[in-house]
Design a binder for these strands. Structure first.
Lengths: 157, 157
DNA sequence: TGAAACATGTTACTTTATAACATATCAAAT
DNA sequence: ATTTGATATGTTATAAAGTAACATGTTTCA
């Protein structure tokens, strides 16, 4: 995978993500309601981190809901089933690029354009650290903030 | 280092941290004002993640300030000089256990008692990922949420 | 001793997130 | 078909986290 910051067939990446989502929900008996599906579409096509209230603005414009709980519930659904991730460093959310797959994602987040690339880390190092300390891991947060190659072209710092 | 969740001479760990802080500030010509020092002391002696408003309550009780900017300024000072870190996953702050040292910290955060252990990761893996993608790293966030050994004793899940 | 840099005080506000409770819809078993 | 339990939505209100902006004070050092 990796799907870094390279160009890709974006329309296909979005529609493919939605198919996976539909398929997975059907298989697991999860209800993919209009709001949930739309939020995933928005995140997936933006391909960047989006804030809850930014997403809510879209829903409101489409009459899919207007109050904060609407978007937070949809995001809870998506994140708890692995279809989206929260970027803690930005208080924002991204679509998962490989939902269903068991993974320990690492994110590269561009502070200029907010685009996010998801990559996999090998979990060995953190697991070792935790087991040395007798610590039981429930959730890992690995995020790298910086500047993506495209944004770095303009102003090489 | 590591300083996981083991027992340690806490009074000494706190006073030692403050000495380091004073020494470092003196050397760099930084102003260690009463608010800044007190916030570090609070974080250091709590030895866990504390929210900004929780810290502010302490300052208020001691007449060191009462408005949000007071605490956020102090925390900006401490974090920007490496004396404290923000735990993004909790929107909270911890004292750094080895200020001054150049490091890529990784945190283990207990969701039951909020205690935090700071450890070092070897930066190779993330650096490799970033350089493969042409991404320029500015800041790393590595946090592991879970249950510390002490809290795990009571209810082994 | 006056000017620049740094720090504080304060008001007001924005952004992010959740609690609580009423209502509606779905799914499956009788 | 109908009840029922679980799941999802609508809505109000509020909590929690963080910042902008500007006036005032305090160091430092030329």
């Amino acid at each position: 995978m990796s799907n870094g910051f390279q160009n890709h067939d974006h329309a296909r990446c979005v529609s493919g993500g939605i198919s996976e989502l539909e398929h997975y929900c059907a298989g697991e008996g999860l209800r993919l309601t209009p709001v949930r599906k739309r939020v995933f579409e928005l995140l997936s096509s933006a391909h960047r981190a989006m804030g809850a209230y930014e997403l809510l603005d879209h829903l409101r414009a489409e009459d899919l809901g207007s109050q904060p709980p609407v978007i937070y519930r949809a995001l809870d659904f998506l994140t708890s089933h692995g279809f989206a991730h929260k970027i803690e460093g930005l208080n924002a959310f991204v679509a998962c690029t490989n939902p269903g797959a068991d993974h320990d994602p690492a994110f590269m987040i561009c502070r200029k354009c907010d685009r996010v690339a998801e990559s996999n880390t090998s979990p060995g190092q953190l697991n070792q650290m935790a087991s040395d300390a007798g610590f039981e891991i429930e959730h890992k947060v690995v995020e790298v903030l910086g500047v993506c190659p495209d944004c770095n072209v303009q102003e090489p710092s």
